[in-house]
Every structure is written in C-alpha cells, then in structure tokens.
Amino acid sequence: MIYDIRHVTSYSYESPVSFARCSLRLEPRTGDGQQLVSHSVDIRPKPADRTARRDFFGTLTESILIETAHRNLRIDSRSRVSVSRQAPGRAAPSPSWESVRDVAFEATSLGPASPIGYVFASPLVPVQRPVTAYAALSFPPGAGILAGAVDLMHRIRTEFKYDPKATVISTPLTEVFEKRHGVCQDFAHVMIAGLRGLGLPAAYISGYLRTVPPPGKPRLQGADATHAWVSLWCGAETGWVGFDPTNDILVENDHIELAVGRDFSDVSPVDGIIVGSRKQKLSVAVDVLLVE
C-alpha cells in the first residue's frame, strides 16, 4: 500500500508572537514493514533557523526558530509512505507472557529496539495497582502473550467510551481509568500501563490511520486525524506487534507509523514555546490518501 499524507497544523494568536521555538516530529518512520518514499515540511512564516537530529528512538526531530513577528503559524507536512506488513492472527500461538516478561528483564542491550526500555513507568504512564489488576484479568497463568494482549485490547474497546470532550493531553491516567472515557491517546496509555504493570514491554506509537467514509458519503478533505496505538514486544521470535485498542484490531496496512516512544510526551508531532500571545487557537487537518 502506498499513501500520500498531508498533515497541516495551524496556530492563530490573539496578539502578535515575537518569538517561537518548536520541535517537529512529522517524518514517518522507515522500518517495521514501512518505507518512507518522500517527505517535506513547509513552514510559514519562514524560520530563521532549522536543524534536525534523530532522537533516542530514531525519530527525526526538527527544531525551528521563528524570530519574525506573526499572528499565524502554519506547518504543512507532506509525505509518501509504502506500507507492507502482516499481523499475526488473533488466535495465533505465542510464548507464555511470563516467559516473555522474564526474557525482557534479562535483556543486555539498552538500544531503542531493546524491550527493557519500555518496561518501566514513564512521564504520562505511571504503573498503578488498579490498572495492573485490570490488565491481569486478561493474563491468567501460562496464557500466551498474544492471546492476553488481544483480550485486553478488546476489553478496553468495549468497556471504555470514545469521547473527544472527556479528556485533554494533560488528563492524568488515573482519571481516564476511573471515568472509562477518552480518546486513542488515553486508550493507548491505559493499555501500556496495564502491560508494564505485569512486566511486559509496551511502546506508544503515534501515526495515522486510513479511514474509509460510509457507503454513499463523500470523503471529507482534512477529516482524517493523527492516531495512537500500542506496540508490544512478544518475544525474540515474534518481535514487536501492534495493537489498536481504540478499534480492537491488530496493526497492519491501514496504520502508518510516525513516531515511537514511551508515551505521548516522547512523540508529540508539534510542541514548543512562544513569546507574546495571550490566547491561541490550534487546528489540525490530516489527509491519508491511498495512491496504490
């Protein structure tokens, strides 16, 4: 599958902004059945300085500096990506979750692909007893790790309500878990917290999801959105497997990976600081178009 992706982030400010420094994580990844074909980012007003580096997780992070006074900032990212991956079956055999846990803790590598970096709590995903107990119901003794993760994903999909008005980025995990309301970011954080509470390595993936309009309805321009899901290390032989608790599906060719980290704080597409504005308005428009 080949996709053209356009991701436009627009800020409008109540008063002129005299200075802005932003970090952009907008280049889709290469790897895990995915190949970046092309990528460009147009920024208005034009930055005085642009530098790029790879972070620990391999994500291209571009730092921009804007010194021109402005009341509008527009970041227009365009990418072409080829995706070809196959998920294991939901009922596929897999090693016991206890054996995967033990092997993960014995890992000797500290690199970004090593499971050990995704076992412990992170800034937005604390390990909490109620969440661990909730996840444990899907992982009885000796259960295969794939079967357990599929069951946990399914329970989150059916027992939590998708509600864009229920949370914001800063809503604590405890509140999300108690209310059982949230969005894809929240569902991914809950699943990761439960898995890590059991000692299982789980990463946060940000990216895009191809959406198909209902029969007879036109596809609306800019109606797609960024998405989030979970990548679970299922042992040395199986490797990392993607789980989408928002939709109760394993990750295949409709998901396009943008960045990987421990939680959302590692992968925010755009963040930074500004000087000179009282209020601001943010709008994001995403298009994921199937080319081939």
Rank of each mutant, 00 (worst) to 15 (best):
R25F: 03
S40R: 15
L73P: 00
R180Q: 05
D42N: 11
E178A: 15
G276M: 05
Y204F: 10
S283M: 13
A225G: 03
Y208W: 06
R54E: 12
V260K: 12
Y11V: 01
H70V: 00
V275L: 11
I249W: 08
C22Q: 15
R29K: 02
V291E: 11
D163G: 00
D186G: 03
P28L: 09
F19Q: 08
L24I: 01
E252C: 06
V125R: 04
A228T: 11
E175Q: 15
G272L: 00
G222E: 04
L124G: 07
G197E: 00
V230N: 00
P172I: 06
H39L: 11
P218G: 04
S63L: 12
D224K: 01
G276K: 05
D76P: 04
R29D: 02
D271Y: 10
R210K: 14
T30Q: 04
T108V: 15
R101Y: 04
S96M: 06
P123Y: 05
D224T: 01
P123E: 02
S38H: 12
L124D: 08
T158S: 14
Y13K: 08
D224L: 00
S63A: 14
I2P: 02
S23N: 11
L110P: 11
R29A: 10
I192P: 03
V37F: 09
P126N: 01
L220T: 12
A107Y: 03
P47H: 06
S84N: 10
S283T: 14
I169A: 13
A52T: 08
W240Q: 03
E175M: 12
F19Y: 11
W240G: 00
A104V: 08
E62K: 13
